[in-house]
């Protein structure tokens, strides 16, 4: 394990329904206070990798059959999601998954329950989310189901932030969003890293946007890591293009 890594994955292999091999021999690390991009085409195994880390894969009948995952130096390969959220590791799902029939504010609140905070503390958390996503404050009483795609993405991220995480796994935050909204969201992520010291592991198809904000990047191809490097280096090299076209 690299010294001081926040998250370290060692050669994991994930199988769904006991037969479907989703990813194989994946190894990656996330340093404290960094943004790491996990790039790849559709079906490359990005979501599976994130869900394996957050423990959600097992809720969808996935299983980590090989390798191990360490977070803050502890083995979390089989730790259930709720325990991981308590320890500061939270995932924002692909496709946002807002609670459609709950108001925006109620959506945010659900993310804050895990530490069982006082009412005062809960309000403080809400205010800090509204500080980063001012638009959500205007929508707080509206049903999340009726918010726009970008707003829903903000709700989903804000909801995860309510648990005061150390590491956030973001699955395709740019999916279906207009370019300027994507920039807005990545800017907020960068601010959160700089001001709150959070780390992010971002799975993205939109390599261009992700590489502009990430420190380090991994490229996934057919369930394996095909290359890795500093975001800047990856951005300039040909490997990225090759991996998308080869798929």
């Amino acid at each position: 394990m690299p010294v001081g890594a926040l998250l370290h994955i060692q050669n994991i292999e994930v199988i769904y329904e006991k037969v479907i091999l989703a990813v194989q021999d994946i190894s990656l690390s996330v340093a404290p206070q960094s943004i790491v991009a996990l790039l790849g085409a559709n079906g490359a195994g990005k979501s599976t990798t994130l869900k394996a880390i957050s423990g959600l894969a097992s809720a969808q009948r996935g299983e980590i059959v090989d390798g191990r995952i360490e977070y803050q130096g502890n083995d979390i390969t089989t730790t259930p999601p709720a325990t991981l959220v308590e320890r500061g590791l939270v995932q924002v799902l692909e496709g946002r998954h807002c609670f459609a029939h709950l108001s925006v504010e109620e959506n945010l609140l659900t993310g804050g329950f895990v530490h069982n905070p006082s009412r005062h503390k809960l309000n403080q958390l809400l205010e800090s989310i509204y500080h980063y996503f001012p638009r959500l404050k205007l929508l707080r009483k509206n049903l999340a189901g009726y918010a726009s795609g970008g707003e829903q993405q903000m709700v989903a991220i804000g909801r995860a932030l309510m648990s005061e995480p150390t590491l956030v796994l973001l699955d395709e935050p740019s999916m279906g969003l207009a370019p300027q909204i994507v920039e807005e969201i990545f800017t907020i992520i960068k601010n959160l890293r700089d001001e709150q010291g959070m780390s992010f592991l971002v799975a993205e198809q939109n390599a261009g946007a992700a590489l502009r904000y990430a420190d380090y990047a991994y490229i996934l191809e057919n369930g394996r890591i095909s290359s890795e490097g500093d975001a800047e280096h990856i951005n300039q090299s040909e490997v990225l293009l090759a991996s998308y076209l080869a798929g």
Partner: peptide, 23 residues
């Protein structure tokens, strides 16, 4: 109540409820 809001959340989306640490 918190339990009540969490219950409604679970009804809407189980996977998302798991993801935010609801038991």
């Amino acid at each position: 109540t918190r339990t009540g809001i969490a219950l409604r959340a679970v009804a809407d989306d189980q996977l998302a409820a798991l993801a935010v640490g609801i038991k």
